[in-house]
Design a protein around this nucleic acid. Structure first.
Lengths: 246, 246
DNA sequence: AACATCACTTTTGTCGACAATTTTCTTTTT
DNA sequence: AAAAAGAAAATTGTCGACAAAAGTGATGTT
């Protein structure tokens, strides 16, 4: 898997390993979103006792990948358009603030490193060719660098633990593509400039616009698809591909 | 306990009940912050098996009230000045955005209800007398109303589940008092006005100032106490009382 | 006296079984 | 035939026991 959580710790216990496998299965859609989870079945599948499976489920619940009800059971979280938009709004708030804090708290070395990363991407031939794969990775790297640069454990934990698992899940399930490389590159460039200027206010503003632009782009795509589907009388919209950036 | 989580569901299972008791014990400081947790000991104390106690611990970990390490054990989270300030910065980001969304998404009925709540507080004699108790409750009610008014499940869950347990813990452990009633009342009043004007931008700005003001006030108090302690050669600073608003 | 090693104790992780609750299916009644 | 009631099956919650890992203290070596 490409988009790794940068602050995760190694899986030492069996429950950890089962959790990781389940995490990938859910994020990549091998376990269908919204479906019920059978503890005995899964325990048998992963060759572990139900206790350790439940331990893994607890961790999945912590990361908002499943939902549990007492005496009823667990379900994989559902991927809805509303949920996706809510996620973007939350990201806008948290990553915006993280970017402001990064401008205040990043060391000069960290900033230099981020600038180096960016110019490396600039020289990368994939950018010129408009290939999305490397840019995708670069985009994720950039966002993580900014988040970690906030030096705020609370923000880091919330964004990386609570949000980004879901972000990756939506990316996979809705088949979202990367942003047009050049546009994102310019925006990233401006954000880094604001950070190296130690201009927290501008840095936050730019990051919020960067994320809000993606959200609005998605909203437009959705509106378009809805109209298309209405004219074509297609009922199933959950498998729709949304060509948009992270 | 006064400051309840407004979105919590009833505790039906034994693990739920143990979790609730442990939650209060941690928040109110009956279990000292940073201390190690003994599973056998706690299980015996609450008269449950270690399995159900571990289930409760899992939930505490989900809410960031304890921290676990594989094969090592659990510790109650530590209350530090840095952690408190990080919490305020995160609140500023999340509640600011929640307030913006509330301006966009609250129903007219919800707004009317919040206005009624505020004028009730205005007429309450406790406000005139500057009694903090009711105002404390009123302040919490106000913030919760705004958060729920965002109609954004992601924001609601993050703030109420992840942040407010810690907020209450810090309030208890640092013995923080309420804000001066009249000042907070005016600020709340202005925020509600912005919401009823459907002015999301202003609503967010005012809420962020409202929270940032508290944070800065705390920072000043801390700086003052640090100076005092230095002159008095007092070493223990963790039990300091910080007279500041939520 | 300080350090390393080994055995012992304690604690955490995992397992299978039982109890309680929910769901499903059958039977009964209107 | 539809709805209600009750029995059976399956699922979740809880328990005590064992296995594995970490911590502790005594012993021996340099």
């Amino acid at each position: 898997m490409l988009l790794q959580n940068p602050i995760k710790q190694a899986a030492v216990t069996t429950a950890d390993k089962v959790f990781e496998q389940l995490q990938y299965a859910i994020v990549e859609g091998d376990m269908v979103a919204g479906s019920k989870i059978s503890e005995p079945e899964l325990a048998k599948y992963y060759q572990v006792s139900r206790s350790t499976l439940r331990e893994a489920l607890n961790r999945l619940e912590k990361y908002h990948l499943i939902e549990r009800k007492a005496n009823i059971g667990s379900r994989v979280v559902d991927c809805t358009i509303e949920g996706l938009l809510e996620l973007y709004i939350t990201r806008e708030a948290l990553e915006g603030m993280a970017c402001r804090q990064a401008a205040l708290n990043m060391t000069d070395e960290e900033i230099a490193h981020m600038q180096a990363m960016l110019s490396q991407h600039a020289n990368d031939k994939s950018l010129q060719e408009g290939v999305s794969y490397y840019q995708e990775q670069g985009d994720v790297d950039f966002h993580y660098k900014v988040i970690l640069g906030s030096h705020n454990q609370q923000l880091i934990s919330l964004i990386c633990d609570q949000l980004y698992h879901l972000v990756r899940m939506y990316r996979c399930q809705f088949g979202m593509h990367s942003p047009r490389a050049t546009r994102a590159f310019t925006e990233h460039s401006n954000i880094i400039q604001a950070i190296s200027d130690r201009d927290g206010e501008l840095a936050e503003l730019l990051m919020r616009r960067h994320i809000a632009a993606s959200r609005k782009n998605i909203e437009n795509k959705i509106a378009l698809q809805m109209a298309e589907q209405k004219s074509k009388h297609v009922s199933n919209q959950s498998s729709a591909q949304i060509s948009e950036e992270i």
